[in-house]
């Protein structure tokens, strides 16, 4: 397989880092691949710009950060403005139109998904926004089996919220029409 380099970005508290951890963990635990997850963060616990990088490969990964992602997820305008120009030419950018107005002159492929509005309308709880986003990511870039990612989601969340998270994951997966 080719090396996948994915960057999740947004603001603190949106679950961006958790999403990255889950994706990488799924690769390692359920598909026996190599994966490394890193993050950069500031002093804020909530708000501020958060970024988490995931590299997935079937060979050893040395440099752990992503310089040029083939997939970038931006959940805020600030993160879009900061990171959209690092995407590989022809790479993918996933944004939520509620929060991000993308640049039409980009040479990346932009997928606008109404993640926030759909989650609030169907599930009424923004806590699972990141899991919904993961469902969409795995449909757009099928680097892992969706079951693997869902298993990793369930490993990480409180058993009380297993159903909610499963629904959110499915919601994101179905949101993307191929």
């Amino acid at each position: 397989m080719e090396k996948h380099k994915i960057v999740f970005s947004g603001s603190g508290g949106q679950g961006v880092i958790t999403a990255a951890v889950i994706l990488a963990e799924a690769a390692v635990i359920y598909e026996n691949l190599h994966a490394v997850q890193t993050q950069s963060y500031g002093p804020e616990a909530r708000g501020g710009a958060t970024r988490s990088d995931v590299v997935i490969s079937d060979t050893q990964i040395n440099y752990p950060k992503v310089t040029h992602p083939n997939l970038l997820v931006c959940l805020t305008q600030e993160s879009y403005n900061k990171y959209s120009n690092i995407v590989l030419p022809g790479g993918l950018i996933i944004t939520d139109p509620r929060h991000v107005v993308p640049n039409v002159n980009s040479d990346s492929i932009i997928k606008e998904l109404p993640l926030y509005d759909t989650v609030m309308e169907k599930l009424g709880n923004q806590i699972v926004l990141n899991v919904c986003m993961l469902g969409a990511v795995i449909k757009i870039l099928p680097v892992l089996k969706p079951e693997s990612v869902l298993k990793a989601v369930i490993d990480r969340v409180n058993p009380k919220f297993k159903d909610l998270n499963t629904k959110a994951f499915q919601l994101g997966y179905d949101m993307v029409k191929k």
Partner: peptide
């Protein structure tokens, strides 16, 4: 900080 916070197998 990088190896401390980095996740890996």
């Amino acid at each position: 900080e990088v190896v401390g916070h980095m996740r890996e197998k």
